[in-house]
Write a protein that binds this DNA or RNA. Sequence first.
DNA 1: TGACAGATTGACCGGCAGTCAATAAAATGA
DNA 2: TCATTTTATTGACTGCCGGTCAATCTGTCA
Lengths: 200, 200
Amino acid sequence: MTINRKQQEFEFKKNLIITAAEEIFFTKGFENTTMLEIAHKVGYSKGSIYSYFKSKNEVCFCIINNYFMSIANLAQKILEQDITGLEKIITFKDRFLREFSQKEDFRKIFETFKYHRNQCMEMEDEIDKNKNYNIEINLAIRQYLQEGISDGSIKDDVRIESLAEALWGEEVSFISELGIKGENSFNYLFELIINSIKQV
Amino acid sequence: MTINRKQQEFEFKKNLIITAAEEIFFTKGFENTTMLEIAHKVGYSKGSIYSYFKSKNEVCFCIINNYFMSIANLAQKILEQDITGLEKIITFKDRFLREFSQKEDFRKIFETFKYHRNQCMEMEDEIDKNKNYNIEINLAIRQYLQEGISDGSIKDDVRIESLAEALWGEEVSFISELGIKGENSFNYLFELIINSIKQV
DNA sequence: TGACAGATTGACCGGCAGTCAATAAAATGA
DNA sequence: TCATTTTATTGACTGCCGGTCAATCTGTCA
């Protein structure tokens, strides 16, 4: 059996665990889910889970990283669309909101990720992956802005780096409040920002 | 010994515990702090803590509520200043940022609060208190906006309710990202929003 | 002083993340 | 095909901690 084949099987099993874990996390929340439950759901014993993941926390990070990958892909796909830079900014926000932040399940697990992301021992891999996705997303947004300036949809005096960081930061951080305040207040805020950067 | 005196003593001891807990939470983080540690720091046994608080979580909420009280007071104080509505908005944000979100310690414990605020059994008192502080802060911001419209510093077509909610929501939610992205991106975002609502 | 109420204690419980020696299964090679 | 090595899997076990509660201690008042 080749090394490659082994690797594939390993990844496949890892994915089985992630899928099962995600489902339970989504229904019961991170804290109320035990490693034993996850294991049983995949037909494994508890110990086995630990040969695929270093900790319960890492399982959560892997799940989140899958979502970050989707978001990074989304950002890339929008980049290729034939619309103005400003429209790309708006499209990204709309799609992000619709696909990721509207689901309460996702919001909850995302909260867990945000909560634990700083006390992460021994899972540099996942942390690095996450950082890279963040960079990808950030770069895409910078390009939206750059294009917007070129195509005349965005004012040419916006500070691209700061704004890209801030926009993505805002979308990520506001997720926590969406359950409490609803989408309206977020959308209004976004509208005001857009208002402030669009070329008139 | 009067009932009143008893009450006072109870509150005093409760405060001792809060102070000790806050210090340990700030140094070691919520998860890494044990109830036993907190107890020993005040010179109590573990059991005693539980006659003052229903759970570890409630201790955290009490600490956070003290901060919310300060913020509500701050909002009120700014309301009484002799400056334009727009200036009040900006002042509130500046002071909030300086006094509360710059401290990494506070940010961490605030994260804990945000993380646990939804899975809160049996501490309706503290939840209610928190809601009330939020309402107070919200009302103050609404008044800033209202005054701003009256005194001509803010455009008269802003949607006061939405904006008040959104501004406070943004400040609260962005705290999580401050450690990662720094203040600049937040400040720039805020600047754009202000830009969009100020009367020219 | 004695009796009562409230405060305080700390041994104890249950639950769970994470470990690891033992075991089973699969791959290798002759 | 079978013996040997390597890898995957298991589940009993540990340590830790939040929370409980019967027992004990302390202060108050008659």
